[in-house]
Simulated scan of single mutants.
Amino acid sequence: METARGQRTRPGTLTAFVRFVLFGGGVGLASSFAVVALAAWMPWVAANALVTTASTLLATELHARFTFGAGRHATWRQHTQSAGSAVAAYAVTCAAMLALRQVVPGPGAALEQAVYLSASALAGVARFAVLRLVVFARHHARPVATGRTTAPCPPPLRSPAAVAPAALCRTV
């Protein structure tokens, strides 16, 4: 969203969360099918790593452009920080799937999907907080256009001239 002056405004938390669910959830849903398809040709952990990497790159771009109001490509810093939260999400989904296989030998595709998507949703809520508060926080630190004009910042205060230590101990 832009103001009359062309400045981007910060979406509210609810709006950002809805966008996060739509974009991240859409990528996550597609990823869940991709993991199952790739797992037919390679170990599940490797398939999950490959899909997590690709989906993180795509989702970070979508979040930079639309979810958090940046309106432009994600920076390398944002991709790197987002990757950190994706590693945590990867660990959560792997742990959930490994636990499932310990409890249910040979689970069906529907049960695997349910467990994977549930673990992804849990990790997704945590990722939203990390992305909003850390990764894309720089965009939120910018002044939000309100239509009001603000006075320029005053010049920085200058420190007084150095005072000799003896002068600090004098009493008046």
Rank of each mutant, 00 (worst) to 15 (best):
R19H: 06
R19V: 02
V21D: 04
V21P: 02
G24D: 03
G25S: 14
G25T: 14
G25R: 13
G26I: 08
G26W: 11
G26F: 09
S31M: 08
S31A: 15
S32M: 11
S32R: 03
F33A: 15
F33E: 12
A34E: 04
V35N: 01
V36K: 09
L38T: 01
A39R: 07
A39E: 09
A39N: 08
A40R: 14
A40V: 07
W41F: 14
M42R: 04
P43D: 00
V45P: 14
V45S: 13
A46W: 11
N48V: 12
A49Y: 08
A49I: 11
S55D: 03
S55A: 15
L57P: 02
L57A: 12
L58N: 02
A59H: 09
A59W: 04
T60V: 11
H63E: 06
F66G: 02
F68K: 01
F68S: 01
F68H: 00
G69I: 05
G69F: 00
G69C: 05
G71F: 07
G71M: 10
G71K: 13
R72I: 01
H73F: 07
A74I: 05
T75P: 04
T75Y: 07
T75R: 14
W76Q: 09
R77E: 03
R77T: 10
H79Y: 15
T80Y: 00
Q81L: 15
A88Y: 15
A88P: 02
A88H: 10
A88N: 03
A89E: 05
Y90N: 00
A91R: 07
V92P: 01
T93L: 07
T93W: 01
A95M: 08
A99N: 00
L100W: 09
L100M: 06
L100D: 07
R101L: 04
V103Y: 05
V103M: 12
V104F: 06
P105H: 15
P105D: 10
A109Y: 03
A109Q: 12
A110M: 08
A110R: 08
L111M: 06
A114Q: 05
V115S: 08
Y116H: 13
Y116A: 06
L117Y: 02
S120Y: 03
S120A: 12
S120F: 05
A121K: 11
G124L: 09
G124W: 12
V125L: 13
A126G: 10
F128E: 02
A129G: 13
L131W: 04
R132V: 00
R132K: 11
L133G: 11
F136Q: 12
A137K: 07
R138K: 09
H139E: 15
H139D: 14
R142H: 11
R142N: 03
R142F: 02
V144D: 10
T146E: 08
G147F: 00
R148W: 09
R148Q: 13
P152C: 04
C153N: 09
